[in-house]
Write a protein that binds this DNA or RNA. Structure first.
Lengths: 336, 336
DNA sequence: AAATTTACCGTGAACGTTCACGTGAATAAA
DNA sequence: TTTATTCACGTGAACGTTCACGGTAAATTT
């Protein structure tokens, strides 16, 4: 049960601590012969360097924090998987933390991660204000943020092309002949919410279609939120024949609402979601959605974060994630 | 950017390191007056104790590892959420790790977590052999394992009542008049797989219903695996009118297979899954499933783990998680 | 008044590693 | 031969905490 330390190995191999350290991290300045001797001693004793002790002096812990609203939203596990896979390759470990979209919780979590000594933090869609984020960035480096544009040298952004996503949805509705379209969206006025609605509305305007606040309904970005918002919207605006949802969960909630209201999909109402989580192709009717490569968000974020750790003084450009519209049964009668 | 250390606080408050430490961890031996003085200094300087340094001497990192096959299986996020919520309450942080059911990966991950210095490890359904697990437990403490019975003082078990789960499914099929029932299950012969099948078969036998290897089809515990297994099974055993699946993902895959084969659910084939993930009530037809409280698995596991951390020499009894059958459209015509 | 206790607070050591040096021997250059 | 240079390795310090002591003054007891 007693830990094997570097001194035990040194004694066993008949060398000094430093030589053992050299053998392990092969930084040179050591002969092949003694290196072999040390490494066999390492193997025999089952020595593994103590990370806390290493961290103490190197100021690196080999850990990062991944912060998001709720792991139960299938969007996040997909991103997390990307982060984790890159992390494991580089012998990094990652803390996952839920904020429940509560600013108080998020700040507490960030503090906790900093105290923990993580080498960097990835925040997927922060719910903090710009001021709080800038303040935090002043004291901590490096940070990756998605769907949030906070201009600070310690923060690197990964932005989904939300505007184009909204535009793609609108274009498809228009092309299908819809003229009365509505939006179901997050009540939190986030960066991505604004852009998605903006892209959608702009495209409608370009085609001289009516759109104003009255066709927007809001709710929590969840199944229940989407259900309630859709029910409310379709009750008060029964002329609508197409809905664009902030994310897939809300879209699925909307689908359920339609079913409960006796509205067929897509015969009476067409629906397009956002994110294209795995669920979209499982439900029936399957859900059209604006796809974004979630796994790649994860890998890109983590890769970039590690670059920032390795080169602390470099300022990296922000990156954009493309989107694409995936059509399924919820928008198209002739779809299999 | 420079870290505020305990010495800075000590200097600012005009006391020694130790007194600052006493003020923070209020262990007594300090007057209210100086405590106040120290704490205001702490606040003014924004001091937060460095966890690595603390860990160095206390041998506690305030971190635990949560290991499972794949975060993309919705079962695990639900459990993880329970673990994380308890963790946050106790100011713990948790590493999430995917093994992809690969023993090599799992051992590597466990090693990495130990080196990281986690205070404990929760393994949800290990894919390692008993020998490897015992060996690992010999060198590490404490460990929580679900659905795996490895008898070792360092390991505490949390076991789902798999046998009863299988029995409940069988009972319901029998009650509905089915006489030709099949099983779709994991190809890995895990603890839970054996028990679920066992509970199911035993109940069939008690009612003198036919059951043998020929009505078992295996595949990966995923959508695709369930799809393939169901297609194979229903092709070769077309008399089957009911399927019991190892987990919900396989069940959903089976539903899709039925649809592709022109079989209606539940008119031609009834299906029961396992786990009762959130998805079951979203799909259409909704899926009957053996429910287990996943969130509670997480909270129980983490709570127990912390108990083990606090009282290293105590041996705790294993715990059982009850199951219940939730009926939905996939097994019942008259269900709304 | 002397002795003992109590309440606070400070000091050196330790945790296990790496970094910046220092050292001595062998080799190469003068 | 003498002086540099290189190579291989060792030594003290440092990272920021907490632990086990030790010490001093005031309060209490004898």
């Amino acid at each position: 049960m007693k830990q094997v330390t570097i001194n035990d190995v040194a004694k066993a191999a008949g060398v000094s601590r430093q030589t053992v350290s050299r053998a392990m991290n092969d930084k040179g300045e050591i002969s092949e012969e003694t290196k072999e001797r040390v490494l066999t001693a390492v193997r025999e004793l089952g020595y593994r360097p103590n990370r806390m002790a290493q961290s103490m002096v190197t100021r690196r812990t080999g850990t990062v924090g991944l912060v998001f609203s709720d792991i139960l939203n299938p969007f996040f596990p997909e991103v997390a998987r990307g982060v984790q896979d890159v992390a494991r390759e580089q012998e990094y470990n990652v803390f996952l933390c839920n904020t429940d979209d509560d600013p108080k919780v998020e700040t507490q979590i960030l503090q906790s991660l900093v105290a923990q000594g993580v080498d960097g933090i990835i925040i997927l869609g922060s719910c903090l204000g710009a001021k709080a984020l800038l303040e935090f960035a002043d004291t901590y480096h490096p940070i990756i943020m998605t769907n949030r544009f906070v201009n600070h040298p310690n923060i690197n952004q990964l932005i989904v092309d939300n505007i184009r996503g909204g535009a793609l949805a609108a274009e498809h509705f228009i092309q299908q002949g819809h003229t009365q379209v509505g939006i179901i969206t997050n009540e939190n006025i986030s960066y991505s919410r604004v852009r998605r609605v903006q892209g959608f509305f702009n495209t409608l305007l370009q085609h001289n279609l009516p759109c104003d606040e009255s066709v927007i309904a809001t709710g929590a970005p969840t199944l229940a939120g989407g259900y309630a918002a859709a029910k409310h919207l379709l009750t008060h605006q029964p002329q609508l024949t197409a809905l664009f949802a902030y994310n897939d969960l809300m879209a699925l909630g909307a689908m359920r609402a339609c079913r409960d209201m006796g509205l067929d999909i897509p015969e009476h109402v067409s629906i397009i979601g956002f994110d294209d989580i795995h669920l979209t192709s499982i439900v029936s009717p399957s859900l059209s959605s604006v796809r974004v490569d979630k796994y790649m968000i994860g890998t890109k974020a983590m890769t970039r974060l590690l670059e920032m750790v390795a080169r602390p003084d470099t300022i990296f450009p922000w990156q954009e994630m493309p989107v694409e519209l995936v059509l399924r049964e919820s928008t198209c009668l002739t779809f299999s």
